[in-house]
């Protein structure tokens, strides 16, 4: 499931690849559960994206700094423990700071643990690279993830409620497209976005990506 990393050109490239060229949602199609489940409003998407940013960057920093002390046989278990700790921390922090949004996100904050973007970055990058590069890589991926969540959440909220971040856009007589904030809307909007990306790529065939990247994961 993991990409064969070409030798890093520079630090900037490690950062920017996760944001756009290897965007975890739109290109690699990873981490689908939170992507679809919490994007019924832009605010939820933002909070989820920030929580994932914290967990991913924190875990990458920690894993890359302790990687030499962890024996290979137990590394996955150690990574999971590290990730789960960060998730518990962010879970309680959100509960204390923004209890209303925490309630809406509900079970999906603990489920960040099984978001395979995070374990994937540890296994593919942080366990092999320096702290500096790992943090950049993690920040790139999580900003890419945040960007994808915001795009989905924004689109769904605009169509499904007629608002963005709770601010009414079209006046009170707008007829909301209820489906968009319900489960089918998540699948359909992401499907249409991927369709758009495919179309975009088809127009620039020389930059086409490895189709193997399209295998989705949770």
């Amino acid at each position: 499931m993991l990409t064969q990393n070409s030798a890093p050109d520079n630090a900037y490239d490690e950062f920017i690849k996760g944001v756009w060229r290897e965007n975890p949602v739109f290109v690699q199609v990873l981490g689908m559960c939170p992507t679809l489940a919490v994007t019924n409003s832009a605010m939820n998407a933002l909070v989820m994206g920030l929580a994932t940013f914290f967990v991913l960057t924190g875990s990458s920093a920690l894993v890359s700094s302790v990687k030499d002390w962890i024996p290979k046989q137990v590394r996955i278990s150690c990574y999971v423990i590290i990730i789960a700790t960060f998730v518990t921390v962010i879970d309680y922090t959100l509960l204390a700071l923004v209890p209303k949004i925490h309630k809406e996100l509900g079970a999906f904050i603990p489920l960040i643990v099984v978001n395979c973007i995070i374990l994937g970055r540890q296994e593919a990058f942080a366990s092999k690279n320096t702290v500096y590069l790992s943090v950049l890589d993690a920040m790139g991926s999580s900003i890419g993830f945040l960007f994808a969540l915001l795009a989905l959440g924004g689109l769904r909220e605009i169509l499904g409620v007629g608002a963005l971040f709770g601010v009414n856009l079209f006046g009170e007589h707008y007829e909301p497209w209820v489906i968009m904030v319900l489960p089918p809307g998540g699948f359909l909007v992401l499907g249409l976005i991927l369709l758009f990306f495919n179309w975009f790529k088809a127009r620039k065939p020389e930059k086409s990506l490895n189709p193997a990247l399209e295998t989705p994961h949770g």
Binding site: E175, W177, V178, I179, L182, P184
Partner: peptide, 10 residues
């Protein structure tokens, strides 16, 4: 089905 889900009242 799309219409019914989107505009249940109408």
């Amino acid at each position: 089905a799309f219409l019914l889900g989107n505009f249940p009242i109408a």
